[in-house]
Every structure is written in C-alpha cells, then in structure tokens.
Amino acid sequence: MFAYIVRRLLATVPLLMIALYAVHVGISLTTDPRADFYLCLPRCQDGFDTITEAYNLDVNVWLRPFTWFASLLQGELGESSSIGEPVGEVLRSRGWNTALIAVPAFVISAVFALLLSVYSARHQYSKGDYFFTGLAFFGLAFPSFVLALIIQNVFGVQLENWFGIKPFNTGRKTGTNPLEILRDITLPVMSLSILFISADSRFGRASMLETLNQDYIRTARAKGLPERRVVWKHALRNALIPLVTLWALNFSVLLGGSVVTESIFSWPGLGPAFIRGLFDADIDLILGIVLLTGMFTVFFNLVADIMYGVLDPRIRLD
C-alpha cells in the first residue's frame, strides 16, 4: 500500500509540475507587469527596475518558472501583489473560508445525490423518478452564476429578514458564533449543493440501474433477501465504486474554491482571490492556487483509488 502511494505520487507530481510550468509560461508570455512603466521611462527607471527584479523579468520566459520552483522547494510561495500578503497566508486564510462552505456542500450533495439515485433507480420510470430526473435536468442546465444570482436575489434580498444577507456585502459578516456562521454559509452552500446534486444524482442513478440489472442482484433476490437488503447491501456496494471517483473530484473542486459562487456571494474564499489575481496578473497567487487545487486533485484521487480497493476486492493496489 505504501509503495502504491509512493508510486502514484511519483507518477502525478511531475504532471502537476508540468501544469504549473505551463501556467507560468502562459501568463508570462501574455502579460507584463511593467506595462504601465514603459510610457514614463526613463524617468521611472527605479520603479521599472524594482519590478524587473521582483518578477525576475530579466530571466528568459521559458526558464522563469524554475526560479519559482526553486523557491517552492524552500517552502516559499512568494508575495501576492494583488492582496499584498504572502501567498501562503492568503491560501491559509482564504482556504479556511472556502472549506467552510465546501465541506457542508460536499456532504449535503453526496447524501442527497445518493438517496435520489437509489430512489430513482428503484422506481425507474415512476412519477417520482420523472420528477427528480426533470429537476436534475433543469439543475444541470443552470450555469452556476444564474443559479447563485437567483438564490441570492430570492433568499438574500426578497427574503432579507430570513437570512439577513444583503447582496454584495463584502466578506463573511461575523466570526465565531456557530449560528451566525450557519446563517452566512446557507445560501452559498445551497447554490453549490443544488448543482452537485443535479449532476451526481443522474450519474448515481445510471450506476445504480446498471448494478440493479446485474446477475448477482437476481441471485440475491433468488436467495429470498428482502428488496431493502438487495438494494442497500448488494447493489449499493457495487454502485458506490464509480461514485467514489466522482465524489473525490467534487471535493477537490469544491476545496479549490468555487470561483463563481464565492464571487457572487462575496465570500472571501479562494475563488474571488483567484479571479482578482488573474486580472492583476498576480502570478505568484495564481500559481499558488493552481498548486493547491492540483494537490487536492492528486490527493483526493489517491483517496478515491484507495477506497476503490476497499470497496472492490478485485482491485489490488500494489
């Protein structure tokens, strides 16, 4: 198992490096932090030089990522120019805020998607199945920003006294009181959950149906097992196997910060920081966030594969 994990990391870490390299070169090729200075040269030569120094701009574009990698090896992520804090600090504080909505959204969507999948698969082509399938179709057609805007408007504005959220308030309103946190996270969590439930329940339904049509399900019924047991033990265990990968992906995406939803609810998570970094060509921040999301993907995929091995005895991780 340990050997497996090491091997997996050895296979994926280089990929992550290549991705980071490509992003670095891509941004360097297309942006120039000195753009504003060219007009005033040579008058502002000092400022020009400072920036050249800070961004290693005298280094060849294709080699520049290596200075970033070198400092990464020393645990140095650089300074975010758009926020004015060390990138490590930004990732930590913003990452915490993101987790505050990502974890509940993940749990809620996983549970609901699972329940809906089982229901729809067991009652295929029933009224309830059509209803939930229709809802999922509808939910899937909503871009996250349309959904978030509608939810914000309906629940945050029209029903302001319910949740006490004003549109476009900046930042989490309060700190530590659990009730207030709950009030603050409700709408973003709701937006995210609806999207993920829509996507996952359709996939889950398909997986569950596929499983329910397998021969071993017929065997389980022929043994005289009650349908409940057939579904929740024999079918679910098998249907979960592909779902685990999906959940791993969801969780890493959520933890990486939902750019749209967080921006709309002015949630001070990783998403809005990323967008701001993009517009300000804040290369260290962008790379920091790409690194973080990449690590989440790598990590949770690994977790998913280990779960695979636990759920499915045919798969051996070595």
């Binding site: 990929l15 750019v259 967008i275 993009l278 999301t293």
Partner: peptide, 13 residues
C-alpha cells in the same frame, strides 16, 4: 495533465 487542475481554473487562465 489536463485533468490535474480543475477545468475552470485552467480555462480562466
């Protein structure tokens, strides 16, 4: 490689 970073992040850049 293209799957290692969430799509929206790569697309944004």
């Amino acid at each position: 490689l293209l799957l290692i970073v969430p799509a929206l992040i790569v697309l944004s850049v």
